[in-house]
Design a protein around this nucleic acid. Structure first.
Lengths: 126, 126
DNA sequence: ATTATTGCAAAGATTTTGCATCACC
DNA sequence: GGTGATGCAAAATCTTTGCAATAAT
């Protein structure tokens, strides 16, 4: 049985309200502004918990660290090879979710896609 | 200018021929059977190189380690919450690639999606 | 000849964990 | 009161890197 905690609530809200894709220590430093005593271990424990719950997504952005995304509405990511900038891609994905549903029972808790290339901004710098 | 090496060739082929999603050290132990002297650093260096080239994909399977996938034909992954098993989902994704293409110029080098849930096998064990 | 790549080992970075204490139910 | 969650720090894990030697062009 899980008990509520201020720390977990703050982490969940922090991720829900931001639109970037922070790592664990970025979340840690952000939360510390409101709750200076929070520990990094607690942030890691709760991020893992929230990913398992399906409240947040875990992303691999290719830099070796785990990134997190509070936007659970299924969407995709475009990552620029040159500047590293990440753009969210929202689109109809009914078809793909139906296909995924064939593989499981119950709700699907995570869903995220990455594309890598040269973004339009970097392209125009030539 | 890049030079060819046996080590890199073996790593690329190893990933192209297998259909699981190994971590760096799994690739390392696999290659060591043919080339016992290869070092872990070399495997890491080449995996990173191959990801950047777009020859292989980097996957985040939620266990904290980076996984690799030699199947570059765009596809999706279903990951069972209970047994950890991974199933590939192949389907038409013309629409989604077109959408991603709006964000960039040149080729898109990576593309991979994850879904998490309870797989049919685990479901049937109740 | 030049320089990319390697093997090795050490260093760096990230993430997990043991434990005493605290807070929720 | 019982137990889930925390803070802290140490440990474990994963990945990168410096450097001398080797191999590819």
């Amino acid at each position: 049985m899980t008990k509520r905690s201020l720390q977990r609530d703050l982490i969940r809200e922090n991720l829900a309200h931001r639109h970037d894709h922070p790592t664990a220590d970025m979340v840690y430093y952000s939360i510390r502004q409101e709750l200076p005593n929070i520990s990094l271990g607690t942030v890691y424990r709760n991020l893992k918990f929230l990913v398992e719950q399906g409240d947040i997504l875990s992303l691999n952005l290719g830099d070796g660290r785990e990134h997190f995304d509070g936007q659970i509405k299924p969407h995709y990511h475009f990552i620029c090879n040159q500047c590293g900038n990440i753009e969210d891609i929202f689109m109809d994905e009914l078809q793909i979710c139906e296909e995924a549903a064939k593989h499981c029972s119950g709700k699907i808790t995570g869903h995220s896609t990455y594309f890598y290339g040269l973004c339009n901004q970097c392209k125009n710098k030539h």
